[in-house]
Amino acid sequence: MSRDQYLSCYSIFYRVITQEKALSGRSRNFGWKAYYDINDIYKYLRNMSKTYPEWASTVVGGRSYEGREILGLRIDTPTKRGPGKPAIFIESGIHAREWITPATTTYFINQLLTSNDPNITALRDSFDWHIFPSVNPDGYHYSYYIDRMWRKTRSRSPNGCFGADPNRNWDHNWNTAGSTSNPCDYQTYAGSKPFSEVETRTLASYIAGVENLQGYLGFHADAQMLLVPYSDSKEHCDNYDDLIQVGKTSLDYGYRVNKEKYEGPGTAAELLYPASGGSMDWVRQALGTPLVYTYELRGYYFSWPPSRIYEQGDEVTQMILGLAVEAGRLGYFR
């Protein structure tokens, strides 16, 4: 890249970053034309639980290094309560700088709770939802106020360096691919051992306790692709063909919204790069959850204009609808 090209890219990136922090789109009552700090996101979740007390309740999925709750919203309408109702867990914001993921996840929550579309209300009523917009709240808060490109947690290593990559810290082939043992690495330090980070350790405990967990969806940015297990090799899990078929339908539903094409579905080792110690792979291997996906949303150097959050929110809503429709057709939720 030439100097002029670099300066041009940097200029565009700086402008997008500046737009992200603009206050003009902020709503007193929370909205999707601006990015909000973790405290605002948590206030939104609590408000929704108060507004829809028969449907929604806040749940704590764990704790952070700095003492924050990992707060989520459980949506479980009374229409189909009872044994056997399938549960779906949604994880967002595990990488702090990927702001579009908490934004689209709260957008999806809003769709589930307020939409009159019969397809969306059926989606809401068919599952026991456990939705966590930010599972790395310390990192997100630090990214929001201090270092926009911060990715990791905020734990402190003995040598004084901060943070580990919480998506390299799970106990699945830990630190064998796409990670480092250097605590001062800015991006992919895997931690001192599997589950060294309190965020991953306590979140894993919560996930393991979810009854009848049939689906696990992780949201990242910004590779614009759909990934399936396993991320650290080209080995395919036993229902790989079903995962690909369901994933293609999910992407087809999303494509109808904005005509944006995603790569995949496929494994990260095939489509992106090998990476071990990720949440998706642990959930699949340790818990045997049948439907496990990671959605890499759109963006530009982990940025996305706040005025266009709704675009990805609508895409994500339709992608999840498509996933549920096709998986149900294949008999996963009987």
Rank of each mutant, 00 (worst) to 15 (best):
F30L: 01
Q187Y: 14
E260M: 15
T188N: 11
E20H: 13
A56E: 02
G322I: 08
K259W: 06
L203H: 00
P78K: 06
T18H: 09
R334D: 13
V283D: 00
N173R: 15
T18D: 11
S196I: 06
Y293V: 07
H130V: 02
A164M: 14
I12M: 11
V59W: 06
G331I: 10
L123N: 06
G264Y: 10
Y186A: 15
R298F: 13
M48S: 05
S231R: 12
I120V: 12
V135R: 04
Y295H: 13
W170H: 04
D117L: 08
K43C: 05
L330M: 14
L73T: 04
H141Y: 08
Q245Y: 10
E326Y: 12
I109Q: 02
L213P: 02
R46N: 11
P86S: 10
S181M: 09
G264T: 09
G25N: 03
A208G: 14
R63F: 08
G288N: 02
D117V: 09
N167C: 01
K85C: 06
G139T: 05
T18G: 13
N212Y: 12
L227I: 13
A327N: 07
G247M: 07
L291D: 06
N212C: 07
G160N: 01
N212A: 07
A164F: 08
H172K: 14
H130N: 04
N116P: 00
D281A: 01
M48T: 02
V228W: 02
I109S: 02
Y293N: 06
G277Y: 04
C161Q: 05
Y35F: 15
P86W: 07
G82L: 12
G93N: 06
H130A: 02
I17L: 11
G62I: 01
F89V: 01
T105E: 02
N173V: 12
I12N: 11
P305V: 15
I88T: 10
R156I: 15
S64T: 10
G322T: 05
L73H: 01
R81W: 10
L217R: 04
L203M: 08
V316I: 15
P290D: 02
R26Q: 05
F195E: 07
P274H: 09
D37Q: 12
W304S: 06
V257N: 05
Y186V: 15
A22K: 08
S233G: 05
F219I: 08
F30D: 00
I17S: 13
F30G: 00
R3G: 06
G331W: 03
D138K: 10
G72D: 00
L45R: 05
R81M: 09
E69P: 01
N29K: 06
P118M: 10
G266H: 09
